[in-house]
Design a protein around this nucleic acid. Sequence first.
RNA 1: GAACGGGUAGCUCAGUCGGUAGAGCAUCGGACUUUUAAUCCGGUGGUCGCGGGUUCGAUCCCCGCCCCGUUCACCA
Length: 499
Amino acid sequence: MTEEHHSTEQDLKRHRMEKLERIRARGDEPFKYAFARSSGIGAARAAFEAAESACADPAEAKVPATLAGRMVSFRDHGKSAFADIRDESGRIQVYFNAKTLGDEAFATLADLDLGDFIGASGEVHRTRKGEITLFATSYELLTKSMRALPEKYHGLTDVETRYRQRYLDLVANPEVLDTFRKRVQLISAMRAWLTGRGFLEVETPMLHPIPGGATARPFITHHNTYDSELYLRIAPELYLKRCIVGGFEKVFEINRNFRNEGVDTRHNPEFTMMELYEAYQDYMGLMDETEELFVAVIEAVTGGTEFPYQGDVIDATRPWKRIKLFDAIREYAGVDLESTRDRDEAAALAKKAGVEVDPAMGYGKIVDEVMSARVVPHLTQPTFLYDYPIEISPLAKKKRGNPALTERFQAFIGKLEMCNAFSELNDPIDQRERFMDQLKQRERGDEEAQHLDEDFITALEAGMPPTAGLGIGIDRLAMLLTDSASIREVILFPLLRPL
RNA sequence: GAACGGGUAGCUCAGUCGGUAGAGCAUCGGACUUUUAAUCCGGUGGUCGCGGGUUCGAUCCCCGCCCCGUUCACCA
């Protein structure tokens, strides 16, 4: 005999395997194919409560039901037993009794485990202790669970397990399910608002021969048949504008972007963006629409315009504060970065404002840095910053009357950047110059500077009507509306290092 | 990539000033026909993240590595 070494986990699985074999041995199928429910659990509870309030004597209320769900709790009392089963709509107690169920059927309860899916038929009434309960006259095992689920009381808190095995997180922590429901609501509400305004949802390539539309490092992949390098898209922007060139007037896309960059509480390598483009619109008109869109979504998800975020109460009531970027810098950082466009002078001003700048940073980058460090930390309540320097806005149109600036805005809520928008640059000659400027930065070692996309310029040469465009980071917005401190809390399967 | 914190039973956590570890829940056996963190009695379960070093002896001390979290850097 060799010494047997069972880990607990193996023991648990072995026990369940033995039960599985017993179930099969008596001719039952532990993995059923379908089950006809009379309703979901939530609906059954509601129906019972309605019957109860319609009854002269509420204690007499009873409603027949056939329900199914995962068994999450089991309390054995010898000749009777209580189980809690849960489906997506709620939880209900099921009462089993040897007399009504029959001794044989009652005995098979011993082969059930927490985590199993069962279906049960009977009547719903209320126990003496006031618990709405399905008194089962029959039951069947629908799916055997072969593994122990996380403990019911403390749930699952180990962050790594929560992310790597999100299904366990969802089973163990109802509030996580709620977070992801809110994310779904958010996207539905946004899509509904856009569709209601006449925007058409289009799909543009995820595989790009030239990564464009943002300043970011891409993931590189390879296509075998064409034997060519392709990039996972960092933004859909340039393709959506091609749609406008072709004659679409209002388009949007809600889909994934991929950026080969760091991972932290606000960044996942793949993330979801909504981008929209609207012909004949400029950034000021779009700012109004953006405000409406956000408020519509916020109301749909939170039920109002006030909601908590990380200890603050956000009030999204319109109108939102609007402030020029350079005014905000003057106000919060105490320096006038608009007074110069010289890199070194700007660096000196940044230093005066207490912001460390890298020698490699150009003027635009310095402005961006001062904004992030000195302005954004003040932007808890919804605020639009607008009129950004041209150096950091290569796809935005120059501001009327001030070619140093672009007609661009961003909204911040809860100190998070929520969107980026501008009057789209549609002058192909200007666009080429901007790309050339980006190329110079690339040559200076900035790997994130944009590539020259000749086909995009060709498209602009064909003529793109005046257009305004907007991008909203869906994950950031989901964080905001679910009071989540980390982006991983709002992405079902965030990227972790492969084991 | 850097700093700090963490990794002990299936889950949630204690603990060992260095002498190979405990609790609750889960699980297994038993009692119980209205419980709901059911209760009561008894039991199983751990290469204490991985690999080296020091030591009579390491889960604990030292070194390296892996994974996670937070902050920073990069970015949205």
